[in-house]
């Protein structure tokens, strides 16, 4: 099958690959580039485990064709820690026991990051709304909601 070239920025690094037309961004990231932090839970856009950030927007990488991402700026949870220092969201997910099996965690953190980038001081309702596209089968969600609220407070204290 004919291959098509794709080129984009992933967590600040330039990436270029030849892929089969129709390959999802999820499969391109995981199988071609080797960033396995986005997870495939349903491959039909319902579980949110594959969530990534494309040009500042939260996107489901299982429903995004890789060839539509030429020139895009893509961020995943694998690139969130800077210089080995955890992002406040990662720190808060650890401290608040917001992970159990961990499979939904990278997607949850992406959804939470987009929320906090736009709404630094979210209400509980804002957090629930922002995470509503991400399924967790272990925690019952409450520790995750608390983690995002804790991270928002940590952010605003740092800013003050």
């Amino acid at each position: 099958m004919a291959k098509v070239p794709v080129q984009f920025t992933l967590n600040g690094s330039e990436k270029a690959e030849f892929i089969e037309s129709g390959t999802t961004l999820l499969n391109a990231l995981r199988d071609k580039i080797g960033d396995t932090s986005p997870k495939g839970g349903c491959h039909q856009g319902t579980c949110g485990a594959c969530s990534v950030i494309i040009d500042g927007e939260l996107r489901l990488s299982c429903l995004t064709l890789a060839e539509t991402c030429n020139g895009a700026d893509i961020k995943t949870t694998a690139g969130l820690a800077e210089g080995g220092v955890l992002h406040p969201l990662q720190r808060a997910f650890l401290d608040a026991f917001a992970t159990q099996c961990g499979f939904c965690t990278p997607g949850m953190i992406m959804a939470a990051k987009v929320l906090l980038d736009r709404t630094p001081n979210p209400s509980r309702e804002d957090v629930v709304e922002a995470l509503s596209g991400n399924i967790c089968r272990c925690t019952g969600y409450e520790p995750i909601i608390q983690a995002v609220l804790v991270a928002a407070r940590a952010n605003s204290q740092n800013a003050a």
Partner: peptide, 14 residues
Amino acid sequence: DSPGHVTGKTAYFA
């Protein structure tokens, strides 16, 4: 196992 989960480094079979 949480540090692996929050950084996306935990290796699942897939």
